[in-house]
Design a protein around this nucleic acid. Structure first.
Lengths: 332, 332
DNA sequence: CACCTCCATGTAATCGATTACAGTTCCTAT
DNA sequence: ATAGGAACTGTAATCGATTACATGGAGGTG
């Protein structure tokens, strides 16, 4: 690969001049500029980013760190990030942590060693203090999933409220025995459980411990297992709210296996409005998050941190929407 | 952030010595090493990768370039890449092109400007010559989806054979009128169409133009549309082979809407063995690719190119498996 | 005509690491 | 006692860019 020196030599100018041409510095005569550009063209010169980055002390690159790649919701979020990043001429890279702390720390080290200019973190295995420390030192924001009480900018929806709305929809459809399948290890899911409880409380429905099932994985298998457990209760629920669509799909599958039709005998509600919630039969009622907008906002927040490292942290909550389908009775 | 100079000063040694300690050079006395490590610890020094990369002329980082993030199959492939990359101490980054040529070219430029050491490309919008040129100049391999006739190392399955096997399974189940939903713009899908045709030919089933539906997108909506079209034919098919599970799920949904049960009146076959093929009712027969192995092999091939740039290109075809479920009659 | 300004360009420092080469100390073998 | 070599450490070049500062010439003004 030719370097800036080669170009300078071939164009019979100094490296400074070549650099000026390439960086739109106006102090270059049209003739010289012309000549340099010709040479650049001819030898196929591309600036070496390692050199440039070292000198400029930045990379114009941001990293999105997600727990898992096979998440349709997140892929929508990332499209939002990409779209906003394009505006700012930032390159977007993605890596998956698989909830592995060592892996996550490895990627976060890229902030220390300047491999990326900033990180958008979707959930984390780290503690609140650790996150706060990083966010204080570097451009780092959280997205969709954040850490309770951490000092960091974040964007997502009001999970408590969304769950409250979903359960309310089930209750106003006439259901009385609403169960929830949640995940106490994840903050957003804990908030959803709280919303579930508040809806029940507000409707005067007594709280039942046995209607709250905790599951670590958001897989359809976990959903099936949880559903079987619930339906085996002496008094099985007549509605099930799951904190993810894949869980909800598993619930539906387990119900169908038992000869129960979701949306008739038992309502089912999911979360995230993924393709799966539309494809399965019956289609599943769910919560739709403004994915793209969430991603865009995440990048805006990150940009804010990059431009004003001393500014205040912000928490942005975007509006969600209920999507009512066949797995729950319509409200009228 | 402290630099190597700060550490050197604090430890009262030269930068060379600090560097030696950090790079396991054995020519350092235990006392000095000890002292340097203490200072490194104390000031929280991390080597600046921009400096190191420039000097070493590499980044120990590889990029996986995929068309779309919301692809469960690919996420399995990437896990394979990550797992193999760990062995070689390479960091994996992922970016999505969304089949946008400009975006793809932007990311491929990272080879020119040395931002990454190599790229694993899953499909491409570029021409054969362009790919060949890049693969000749830099470590670049293709994975799952490659370009017909391009001079580049690649790994995937024998798509023609896999489709042949799938269609044979349908035929040996007693089906006579097998249709296919494919995508002529994608090489792997073209190969699958060829396998479909060969299976029909071998079974002596006459070829019917109207049984081959071409669809650009691999979405369930496209599958529904294609299915309706097929079932509206004067002589509708009694089996449908779709080149992706999501298409197949759409086919099933459209069939159910028409009161037809997949696996009874009409068989359905998908491709990729994604969660969706398991979750929908009835579950969908499909082809399973060794995702993780594919990813691992892709990284091995890339490593091969990095170590021996002058070596020969290799095409590795891994074995696939038929997964028979409820959407097709079992063979007995 | 002397002086000043502005423009175009070049020289050299710099970013933060690695590493070739050189120098010092000290041990060992003759 | 001394040459030779091993072990340790430092000095300075280097990677490929950007950029502060210096320089020289053109043009304008009183």
């Amino acid at each position: 690969m030719p370097t800036i020196k080669d170009v300078a030599k071939a164009a019979q100018v100094s490296v400074a001049t070549v650099s000026r041409v390439l960086n739109q510095d106006k102090n270059v005569s049209p003739q010289t500029r012309q000549k340099v550009l010709e040479v650049v063209q001819k030898v196929g010169y591309t600036p070496n980013m390692l050199g440039r980055n070292l000198r400029r002390k930045n990379t114009e690159r941001v990293l999105v760190l997600i727990p898992s790649l096979s998440n349709q919701f997140l892929s929508g979020v990332i499209r939002g990030v990409e779209s906003a990043a394009k505006e700012k001429d930032l390159q977007v890279m993605i890596s998956a942590t698989h909830n592995d702390r060592a892996a996550e720390e490895g990627y976060l080290e890229m902030l220390d060693n300047r491999s990326v200019d900033g990180i958008i973190l979707v959930g984390s295995t780290l503690e609140r203090e650790e996150i706060s420390r990083l966010a204080n030192q570097y451009p780092l924001v959280m997205c969709s999933e954040w850490i309770e009480g951490a000092a960091v900018s974040a964007v997502g929806i009001d999970n408590e409220r969304a769950a409250f709305d979903a359960v309310n929809a089930l209750l106003s459809g006439g259901r009385k025995r609403v169960a929830v399948i949640s995940n106490e290890e994840v903050y957003s899911a804990r908030l959803r459980t709280q919303g579930y409880r508040r809806a029940l409380a507000q409707a005067g429905v007594p709280y039942r411990q046995e209607y709250e099932v905790d599951h670590y994985e958001y897989t359809y298998r976990a959903g099936m297992r949880a559903c079987r457990k619930l339906m085996a209760l002496p008094e099985p629920p007549d509605a099930i709210f799951a904190v993810s669509d894949e869980l909800a799909a598993g619930v539906c599958k387990a119900l169908i296996e038992q000869g129960i039709t979701p949306g008739r005998e038992v309502d089912v509600f999911g979360f995230d409005n993924t393709t799966m919630s539309k494809v399965v039969t019956p289609s599943i009622s769910t919560i739709s998050q403004p994915r793209k907008k969430i991603g865009e906002t995440a990048l805006e927040l990150l940009w804010e941190r990059m431009e004003h490292p001393e500014g205040n942290y912000r928490l942005v909550l975007l509006p969600h929407e209920l999507v009512l389908r066949d797995s729950s009775r319509k409200i009228n």
